[in-house]
């Protein structure tokens, strides 16, 4: 283990360790001073105990002995009942495992740590680092061992998507499809990347072809049906769009977006009661969806059900209200003169 990492590690642990050590106090004090060899020697002679075992393992890890103490730290993390010691041994175990590239051991500890200490910045940092290093390792392995697989292109495409480089994502999805034309989800992802890249009419048509291709492979894909419906709507093909929305809902009767889209079509077809039934279902499925409550409010209003519309509006107002003390409340006051000193 490189010395630099160890120093950071010792600093990281220092604050939380203060006050935790009572028994093998001398060794722990030496550990806090960064005198790891002396700390190790003192702790080896100290009476056995939880603090002694943890700080001895930490000292040895700090001296570059991760290979021999990583499992001890892992075991201490599992066994110890003291919350501070548990946190310290867990963080150290994750760091040792990561440095030894033992990601399969690091990840369970990291995930458990995250559960135990969900708001601890050090824990979250080490967990993120473990996940990132593990991800890098797997990706490297994939590119090295299966360079010709369509999965390499698929993964590259997904990374480009995350980076907002949709043109490159489209190219990579295209290569993946070329290699494995029957793989599920590739056409769907390609269609979505095409739409993210451009909203031009030709892009709509190109995306639609991909969603249709996905449906040819997987006729039960309700989301692809829904995407086709949206494109048809934008292309002013209302009846065809409605038919696709109906199909999406038939495939997945609890698909909120499709239900809402179908409700809108029913409203336009002057079938408000049907629209209302669909939207009431959406609200049941997604009680905190502003979009669903808004659509239901408008549907009630158009059907003359004023009181129901007002109730939806009240729900919407509540959902839209920023949490108490939200940043904007503070922002609103910036630049204001004290009350009474200006004609507001």
């Amino acid at each position: 283990m490189p010395a630099l990492t160890l120093r950071c590690f010792a600093v990281l642990l220092g604050c939380a360790a203060m006050g935790a050590a009572q028994d093998p106090a001398h060794g722990i004090a030496l550990f806090h001073k960064g005198e790891y060899a002396q700390a190790k020697a003192a702790l080896e002679k100290a009476p056995a105990g939880e603090h002694q075992r943890v700080f001895l393992a930490l000292s040895r890890a700090a001296l570059g002995e991760c290979k021999t103490v990583a499992d001890d730290l892992g075991a201490l993390f599992q066994k110890t009942s003291d919350a501070d010691l548990r946190r310290l041994s867990g963080i150290a175990a994750v760091q040792c495992y990561v440095n030894l590239s033992r990601f399969d051991d690091a990840l369970p500890v990291a995930l458990r740590l995250k559960q135990l200490y969900p708001a601890d910045a050090d824990v979250l940092y080490q967990s993120a680092r473990a996940l990132m290093r593990s991800w890098n390792d797997v990706v490297f392995q994939m590119f090295q061992k299966t360079p010709a697989s369509f999965r390499v292109n698929q993964l590259s495409a997904e990374i480009f998507e995350i980076q907002g480089r949709y043109g490159e994502a489209i190219q990579e999805y295209g290569k993946a499809i070329e290699k494995n034309p029957r793989a599920l989800n590739l056409h769907f992802r390609l269609g979505r990347a095409v739409l993210m890249n451009s909203h031009a009419p030709e892009a709509l048509e190109a995306a639609r072809k991909e969603f249709e291709a996905e449906l040819a492979l997987n006729p039960g894909d309700a989301v692809a049906e829904y995407q086709v419906a949206l494109i048809l709507q934008a292309q002013q093909k209302g009846p065809e769009a409605t038919a696709r929305l109906e199909r999406a809902v038939a495939l997945n009767p609890e698909f909120p977006e499709a239900l809402q889209g179908l409700a809108k079509a029913r409203m336009e077809a002057k079938r408000p009661e049907e629209a209302i039934r669909l939207l009431e279902q959406v609200v049941r499925l997604q009680p905190s969806s502003e979009s669903a409550h808004y659509a239901l409010m408008v549907a009630y209003r158009n059907a003359g059900r004023r009181e129901d519309a007002a109730r939806q509006k009240a729900t919407l107002d509540k959902l839209r209200k920023p949490p108490e003390g939200e940043f904007t409340e503070f922002l609103k006051r910036i630049g204001e003169k004290p009350p009474g000193s200006e004609n507001k």
Partner: peptide, 11 residues
């Protein structure tokens, strides 16, 4: 809001 001009069609 109630008159339908505050938002887009998705609320």
């Amino acid at each position: 809001l109630l008159r339908g001009v505050a938002f887009d069609q998705d609320g």
